[in-house]
Amino acid sequence: MSSTDLAVEESVESTFVQRSPRQIAWMRLRRNRTGMYSAYVVIFFIAAAFLSPIIIKLWGLSSTDLYLDGLNDQAMPIGFGGGISWKHPFGLEPGAGRDVFSMLFTGSRISFTVALITSVASIGLGMLIGIAGGYYKGRIDALIGRFSDLLFAFPSFFMIIALSIPMVQRVEATGIATGNGARIIVLIIFFVFFGWPGFARLVRSQALSMRERDFVMAAQAQGASNWRIITKELLPNLWPTAIVFLSLSLPGYLSAEAVFSFLGVGIQPPASTFGLVLSDSVKYWQTDPAYLIIPSAMLVIIVLALNLLGDAIRDAIDPKAEK
């Protein structure tokens, strides 16, 4: 008998550990099976993208080599599913004869770089500016508001098309990067510049309502600094919005990069982003459907996993969610 009593006491004692809200959220996320699987998928694709040079080399492939002996005399890949074989798991590119597996993983590195940097930067910037506007109100808020109005009203699409070539030249002139590197930098700058106002507005409205809540006043009465109020009282209530926004804007920027690459102002061949591969594959959808299906499926899986992961994190940090 006494041993079971002891066990009960021990379990009570173990619940006595003080946990921060972050630790509790992490425990909840670990328990969410969908969330964890999506996390694995996302981590897999991101890791694959950034390790792609090694993986491709180990497979004995190259993203720029032309495997012309795999093509027939109409330059179409020979064999099932666009030439799927052990050597070329995703088949060959019709026309030039490059390996689709290495094209996609090398390309996804560029796509992910653009989408990740852009989303995180525009959400970070939007968060900062939105909180500043909502928390400090008054003149600062009015200035930010009118400036973001200006950006909203701006024909950003045409501006990117018109200015991308001179901008790329400027970046190349500074010597930071050349060719596609410079194009990536320009694309990110444009996306962030026009991307932050949407999120800043969302945050501003929330910060505006939250700063009047009693818990902010309680923190002021305790003697908390503005910085502490913003980071410890307001931010925890804004994370869910940021995470939902991130999981929506990541795929958004993945496809935005694809659109601009397709229009010729983004990344240029011989690089191969999702956008470039997809826009090329549309030409062959009847003769080589696998060339269209494989990159689309990959994009769908990535976007779906990102969204599910976003949902799981949002649920994990929501104290009112089911345990």
């Binding site: 003080q18 009693d214 006043m217 009282e233 925890p236 009112k320």
Partner: peptide
């Protein structure tokens, strides 16, 4: 309204 919904009692 006076307790931040995202903090635990401890914090």
């Amino acid at each position: 309204a006076s307790l931040n919904p995202r903090h635990t009692v401890g914090t």
